[in-house]
């Protein structure tokens, strides 16, 4: 998993818990680099979940809620670091349809062999898309947060509804994003 995810998670945690609390968590967990993450590194995904769990345990937050908040945070950071990506998009749906390509490029530019879970989108109509997230990790909450962050960025509102996948597995999730108003 890209180190950027770790450094952003820790930055977000610091804004709410403070640096010391974050340091304590990192000290307590058995982490590969003793919690010294760099945004350009690549680290085991399990460590990410361990950190999130530890934060939630300490703050009393629900893990899915926390992941959703983090998804929103990441989208908001992306809107600052990838201004050109957003500049030529007319609305949130257009950005969400293109975001998979951008994520793949971000990961592969440093780690060409890394497997990145696909984020597939399908256009339903002018105001709605369906997003399917194939992953062996439960990231639908994170993704929901990203969608929310994206919709917020464009100043739009949207209704996101989960779709039951036929024979669905825990690693697969799908939902529909429908713009409102």
């Amino acid at each position: 998993m890209r180190g950027l995810i770790f450094t952003e998670l820790l930055t977000m945690a610091e804004t709410t818990m403070g640096e010391d609390a974050v340091d304590d968590i990192l000290d307590e967990l058995p982490l590969s680099t003793d919690g010294a993450y760099t945004s350009v590194g690549n680290y085991p995904g399990a460590e990410f979940l361990a950190i999130v769990s530890a934060i939630c345990l300490k703050t009393g937050a629900i893990i899915d809620d926390y992941l959703q908040r983090f998804g929103s945070w990441m989208m908001s950071r992306m809107s600052q670091t990838h201004k050109t990506f957003f500049a030529d998009k007319d609305d949130a749906l257009e950005a969400l349809e293109a975001v998979d390509g951008e994520l793949q490029a971000e990961v592969h530019k440093l780690y060409p062999d890394e497997i990145v879970p696909n984020l597939n989108t399908k256009r339903i109509d002018e105001n709605a898309i369906e997003m399917t997230y194939h992953s062996d990790r439960s990231f639908s909450a994170f993704l929901l947060g990203m969608v929310q962050g994206c919709v917020d960025f464009f100043g739009q509102t949207a209704e996101v509804t989960a779709i039951e996948l036929a024979g669905g597995s825990p690693g697969n999730a799908a939902f529909q994003v429908r713009l409102k108003g």
């Binding site: 990192l26 680099t33 003793d34 919690g35 010294a36 993450y37 760099t38 590194g41």
Partner: peptide, 10 residues
């Protein structure tokens, strides 16, 4: 120390 290690790693 953690930041320095992160920098060295980078």
């Amino acid at each position: 120390l953690r930041e320095r290690r992160a920098r060295e790693e980078a």
